[in-house]
Amino acid sequence: MLSVALLGYAGFAALCLAMEKHFKELLKHSPRGVHLRSLRWAGWALLLASLVLAVHLRGWAHGLVEWIALLMAGVTLWVFMLPYRPRWLLGLAAVSVVLGPLLGLASLMR
């Protein structure tokens, strides 16, 4: 389920960065429209991927419940740590984007 958590976390991080206000604050430069649009697409795609993976791994009942729980936990961590440790969170998001899909693929192969 770690892969689901990481994908979901990365998804919300992307959706947050897709808002101009947060992008400026976190990355210290003004985004171009195409940046924001692609971040938004990437965010939703990551959330969808984590849903598909959760349902595939655990079935509808458990998968859906665990997916929602992990998303809520991930986004809560993001929002409440953001004012204190923004760099850590961005680092974790970067790691998640790489590690999430890899772990997801690994669990699909098994």
Binding site: C16, M19, H22, V75, W78, V79, F80, L82, P83, Y84
Partner: peptide, 16 residues
Amino acid sequence: FFTFRPGKGQRSWLDG
């Protein structure tokens, strides 16, 4: 949705 501004009194409580 992603907003939490600590250290601002009532504003922070409402954000939280």
